[in-house]
Design a protein around this nucleic acid. Structure first.
Length: 258
DNA sequence: CCTCACAGGATTGATGACAG
DNA sequence: CTGTCATCAATCCTGTGAGG
């Protein structure tokens, strides 16, 4: 359908973002927008794969409008009540005739004219019938994008999403120094070597945190204790994730030390 | 500070309306 | 009959604010 400069075929409806990819398709006035962050899906390739799968699912489940339906829609600037049918006026303002015009495709515009001299009041009706006849020549769906039809008519269903989306508490921030979300290093004052700290935010409450001194536990154990504390904090928050490799590894490391 | 949902503006081609 | 302009609707793109 009418559009800006179309994306490359494999990127139809997909827009790269600094943080990942956005899927944005519009059907029947409804915008279908989904975002796939690199942090949530592990890497850029996986985020793009997920975005494509979602895009394909939308394209295959929601076809674009039929061209004929769109052509029959009465627009706000229509003055006759019948799209494609317009009166032709003489210089004195009287109606000279009625015309039906329909755009079928490039280089194929159907036109029919009915003068009031020849047909009288029936000219408008004849033009309306002609318009209906012209619309019978209009087939197919609107083309939102050159690649849309190929994607929609693909026989195989879109690949289902195998990867698990990370929750917010599992996402490792770009500036995270520990590799574990919610666990961070805090420098100590003066000669103190510092701390490993677990911190978890709480909805409608102050965040909870606990520090483990490197001076007391040593760097590795302090970090492991902070990771374990983070797990405990998440459990207390009733949001403990399952099957998270990061936590399993960290917990086993802690177990080996105790 | 980061992610993400949401909103809205810019851009563009298809189409209707209209003038000559 | 033909050309031009206005409008529409979808894609493309950017900004903002909530939540963590």
């Amino acid at each position: 359908m009418p559009q800006g400069v179309p994306n490359e075929a494999d990127m139809y409806g997909i827009y790269p973002k600094p943080w990942g990819f956005e899927v944005s398709l519009s059907r029947a006035g409804v915008r279908h927008l989904h975002q796939f962050g690199i942090a949530q899906w592990g890497d850029k390739e996986e985020a793009l794969r997920q975005a494509r799968a979602r895009r394909d699912a939308i394209v295959q489940s929601i076809p674009p409008a039929k061209r004929r339906v769109r052509a029959e829609k009465v627009r706000v600037n229509n003055k006759t009540g019948t799209p494609g049918v317009t009166p032709i006026f003489r210089a004195d303002g009287s109606v000279q005739g009625w015309r039906a015009k329909t755009y079928i495709g490039p280089g194929e515009i159907l036109r029919a004219y009915f003068s009031t001299n020849e047909h009288g009041d029936a000219a408008q009706t004849l033009a309306i019938y002609a318009r209906a006849s012209q619309l019978d020549r209009m087939a197919g769906l609107t083309r939102p994008h050159p690649a849309e039809a190929r994607l929609r008519e693909r026989t195989e269903p879109p690949r289902m999403l195998e990867a698990r989306k990370l929750t917010k508490t599992e996402i490792v921030g770009r500036n995270n120094t520990s590799g574990v979300p919610g666990v961070q290093f805090k420098a100590g004052h003066g000669e103190h070597p510092g701390y490993w700290m677990a911190i978890t935010g709480a909805r409608n409450a102050r965040s909870i945190s606990k520090a483990f001194s490197i001076k007391t536990h040593g760097s590795d154990l302090a970090k492991a204790l902070a990771v374990a504390e983070r797990v405990r904090q998440l459990a207390a928050k009733s949001a403990i994730p399952s099957g998270n490799e990061e936590f399993r590894v960290s917990s086993s490391q802690l177990d080996a030390r105790q």
